[in-house]
Simulated assay, not measured.
Amino acid sequence: MNAPPATRGGSALVVIDMINTYDHPDADLLLPSVRAALPGMRRLIGRARDEEVDVIYVNDNFGRWRSHHDELLAGALRGPHADLVAPVRPDGDSLFVVKARHSIFYETPLEYLLAEYGIGHVVLCGQVTEQCVLYSALDAHIRHLRVTVPTDAVACIHPDLADAALRMMERNMAVRLADSGSTGLFG
């Protein structure tokens, strides 16, 4: 059984869908935003590792039901956009959860993992703001987790929808919007 929210106080950085070959529709619209968000993501991952905050990669399996995280990473690093993957790749201490749909929680063991680690606050970065980040923030909110989204560390396909998604997260889900350099980000 999950620990009640009052006893879950730790933070984790969740990196969403950054192990990617960018071989999909809309990739041409997404790539410039990923390039712009990459410095913020790198800053967050570095800060989390320096502050000994758990870094959890939750990534699409791209319909490869036999693949595991090493295969996904190797494929992305062999792809034409390895320069977007290598700087934010998991290290030996990173946790990894494979997902098949938009939300990081939908039919994944993430909720159990967070409860086991005593995590009550997730900092979300990655892609896509108006899709996976939005749905994940909502699912975290309904699980009574505190959520922070550093706006300079999320990438989008459609900037207007991303702006609306961020406003919805802040207004309707009590998501804290911040910058990757903000103090107390993991507090």
Rank of each mutant, 00 (worst) to 15 (best):
P90V: 00
A162K: 09
P80W: 05
V149M: 02
P109T: 10
F62D: 12
A12Y: 04
P109Q: 10
A155E: 08
D17Y: 04
P109M: 08
P80N: 14
R64V: 12
H141N: 13
F62H: 10
A174W: 08
S103W: 00
E52G: 03
I16K: 05
I45E: 14
E130H: 06
V149H: 04
P80Y: 00
G9W: 00
R43Y: 04
F62M: 06
I16F: 07
A137R: 03
P39G: 03
A3D: 11
E130Q: 09
P25K: 00
E52Y: 02
F105T: 12
I19K: 03
L134K: 09
N61L: 11
V34C: 05
A140C: 06
V175Y: 02
T108N: 08
A6I: 13
Y22Q: 09
H158R: 08
Y112S: 14
T7E: 15
D163K: 13
V14R: 04
L185Q: 07
V34K: 00
A37V: 12
P25S: 06
I19G: 02
P90G: 07
M41A: 09
R101T: 15
D152V: 12
F96Q: 11
S33E: 15
E116F: 04
D152C: 03
A165S: 14
A74S: 11
I104Q: 01
D54Q: 06
Y117K: 15
S136T: 10
V88D: 14
G79W: 09
H102K: 13
L72Q: 12
L73N: 10
G187Q: 12
N59T: 03
S180C: 05
I142F: 01
I119R: 06
V55Q: 01
V55P: 06
T7R: 13
H141P: 04
L134M: 07
Y117E: 10
L166G: 08
T108I: 10
S33R: 15
R171K: 13
A3S: 14
T7W: 11
G40C: 05
G126T: 08
R101A: 07
L177M: 11
A48G: 10
P25G: 01
S182K: 07
V154R: 00
L110P: 02
G79C: 09
A48Q: 12
M169K: 06
F105M: 12
L114Q: 04
D17C: 02
V88H: 00
T183F: 01
P150Q: 07
T183C: 00
N172E: 14
L185C: 08
H81I: 13
D54Y: 00
Y117S: 14
H81K: 03
E71P: 05
G118T: 06
P32N: 03
T7Q: 14
